[in-house]
């Protein structure tokens, strides 16, 4: 009886989340004749679609790696810098804004900085370094990593600050008393305690980069980016049967996200052990 109060919530989720998600799979699993088939799912990860997944996984992993390294460094710097006092709260509040800033504004900002007519592009060109002489582009891997770092680094700061706060001074003292150096402390205590948070952060940033649509849409028309590819299939005038590939890509995307979030869930449980 007690569960009856949850009916509105579950009804809402069913209508606006489960049914759409389920429809993606049912559409991806249906052939042109309406019968069940795995053909489109198979096609979703072959040929150009496979290339798109490889490309997206590559830049998302790169963006996640850069975000983890700089995010952790920045979080650590924010925690150990005691003065000025407002610095830490400035860093966390700014991170709160920037982590949510993905989308149009961010893309506009980077186009005006590093686009073909961007300010920095021009300054570098004046100094003799032509960025666009090679295959640099905001829609290629180095460009995407740079832009996505703008929301990935702050997100990493937000998720690792509590973990770094959880490192107790007494552990450090205990290590020093037992003759350990800074290096021993980090190798034997600091990093192992932080490891689940850092790995969890990597997964979070990876899913964040992999699923971003708005930023990528403004930066580029590169159809090797999976969310853009899905968008093209959904919006385009396609011959009958071809649109099922869009759903198949979306289904694979949900599968990738589900695996990452499942791992993240496990890691977070482990990370929280030290944060009470």
């Amino acid at each position: 009886m007690a569960w009856i109060g949850l009916v509105p919530f579950f009804a809402f989720l069913t209508l606006f989340l489960f049914i759409p998600a389920f429809s993606v799979f049912s559409e991806a699993l249906r052939g042109a004749n309406g019968k069940f088939t795995l053909d489109s799912l198979r096609e979703g990860i072959s040929g150009q679609n496979l290339e798109a997944f490889k490309f997206s996984i590559k830049f998302s992993a790169g963006a996640a790696f850069v975000g983890v390294v700089f995010g952790t460094l920045l979080a650590y710097a924010a925690v150990i810098t005691k003065r000025p006092k407002w610095l830490r709260s400035l860093i966390t509040s700014f991170s709160g804004v920037a982590a949510n800033m993905g989308g149009l504004t961010l893309a506009f900002a980077f186009v005006s900085l590093l686009g073909r007519q961007g300010v920095l592009t021009k300054i570098l060109a004046a100094l003799g370094w032509d960025l666009y002489s090679g295959n640099f582009g905001l829609g290629e891997i180095p460009g995407l990593i740079t832009v996505y770092s703008y929301f990935n680094i702050p997100l990493m700061v937000l998720v690792t600050i509590p973990a770094i706060d959880g490192l107790r001074t007494s552990w450090r003292e205990a290590c020093a008393n037992l003759g350990g150096t800074t290096w021993t402390y980090w190798r034997r205590i600091g990093l192992p305690v932080l490891a689940p948070s850092i790995m969890g952060g990597f997964l979070l940033l990876f899913t964040n980069s992999f699923s971003a649509f708005a930023t990528a849409r403004v930066l580029t028309d590169n159809s090797k980016i999976v969310p853009l590819r899905i968008g093209f299939f959904l919006g385009g005038d396609l011959s009958v049967g071809e649109d099922s590939i869009g759903y198949s890509l979306a289904a694979w995307m949900i599968i990738v996200m589900a695996v990452c979030m499942w791992l993240y869930w496990i890691l977070r449980r482990r990370a929280e052990k030290w944060q009470s």
Partner: peptide, 28 residues
Amino acid sequence: KARVLIEFMTVLPYVIPAIALVAGIVVI
């Protein structure tokens, strides 16, 4: 008892990102 279940449900939008959700909306 339902707390963990509900918490799990509320993070599902991470698993089904906007672009996948809208694919479903186009189907229905």
